[in-house]
Design a binder for these strands. Structure first.
Lengths: 216, 216
DNA sequence: GTCTATATAATGATAGAC
DNA sequence: GTCTATCATTATATAGAC
């Protein structure tokens, strides 16, 4: 049957074509800027056929968002982290998340777009759904690293996790623009980026061996 | 005269009301989701009156974006940084940028939204316009800090600047959503946040021998 | 399930009075 | 400069044939 996308978990070939076309366009232009005609055209079908499979435009959007969220969050669960120092584990996990983001650009774009729409709390809910798990695991890693003595005690694990996630998300979001700023010269290699930010986060910027100038 | 918003730098009271209403709605919902009627209604005027002052919807949007960009980037120039260690200067500058962002939420939202629209390279240009200067100054600070021996040589100043900017932008963008994740417990005080991330970036997460214990 | 054709509502934009 | 009234276009959504 059709018209219950919220609970639906498998789609026919035709429906998948519609969903993919819709996801592409919604990600590129946003909900309101995309017409059902445009979706039909990209999906190589007709407008009424879309309405046969999805109740209305909003339901189609919900179906797209649901599959996007499912896709990005399930891939995360599979991300096993090999043993090593906690710095290494964080680096690996961070690289995994960035890979996940870059491997699902359309979904990520959709979710970020939703974040900016303060229409309802719908966007916030989706953000939590997608990033809550990454966040929890990062916080847990940092916390454990503290307990085992690898990390300093007087840092907020939440803050550290937040920094890692923000670096990854912003890399995706702003890199195309930043790339053309003269000062920006680091490569767009995701794993190199992950290593770079984790090196900064673990070792810090200060010269080692120097006196750590007593902070304010 | 009217209908040349690109070069225009001062507006009448009526035009300002229209621009403000338009900025609010465009920031909340995005260009396509906002109707001229809605803008007219919020600005307490009529649709034809908007068309009297602005050539069309797209020109109105351009005028809104132009003033938004001008507003956020000029405030940055005024940000003087007091002397001190480079860690302290970076902290102050970062806090200044975050203040700037939080003080112009609508403008920031508009710009971030534009970043996500891969319609043209227009969004990228705006991003560079708004963030290029912040970026340059951050990179210069880090670089100078390296030359004067405060910071390690083997870090990429660009990467450090990127981390700071991303932390600030993402704080604005995702904090409302993240706030409700159980693990997130740090305050939403902007300057405390800036101090926190700069502490992490300068001192790093690793336990450094035994010298580093005295802090906050 | 998929189409052609169409109903209906809303949108961007204009004409013309004051 | 600001309005009422209106046009032309496009949008979502449906009816009904195959």
């Amino acid at each position: 049957m059709h018209k219950e996308p919220d609970t639906k978990t498998s789609y026919s070939a035709g429906e998948l074509a519609i969903l993919e076309a819709a996801e592409t366009l919604f990600a590129q232009k946003g909900f309101a800027a995309v017409s059902m005609s445009a979706i039909a055209s990209l999906a190589n079908t007709s407008k009424p056929n879309i309405y046969h499979h999805f109740k209305n435009k909003n339901d189609l959007y919900l179906a797209v968002m649901t599959t996007a969220v499912r896709r990005t969050s399930t891939l995360l669960d599979k991300l096993e982290v090999s043993p090593g120092t906690f710095s290494e584990r964080l680096t690996e996990f961070s690289a995994g998340q960035l890979d996940n983001i870059l491997g699902h650009k359309r979904s990520t774009q959709l979710i970020l777009r939703e974040t900016l729409t303060e229409d309802s709390e719908h966007g916030q809910e989706i953000t939590r759904l997608v990033m809550g798990e990454v966040f929890s695991r990062l916080v847990a890693m940092v916390h454990q690293g503290q307990q085992e003595g690898e990390f300093r005690q007087n840092i907020d694990p939440t803050l550290a996790a937040f920094l890692i996630v923000s670096a990854n998300m912003f890399f995706f979001q702003a890199f195309p623009a930043m790339q053309h700023i003269p000062e920006v010269d680091f490569s767009d290699d995701a794993s190199a980026y992950s290593k770079g930010i984790m090196d900064l986060l673990t070792n810090g910027m200060l010269q080692k061996g120097e006196i750590n100038v007593a902070s304010t």
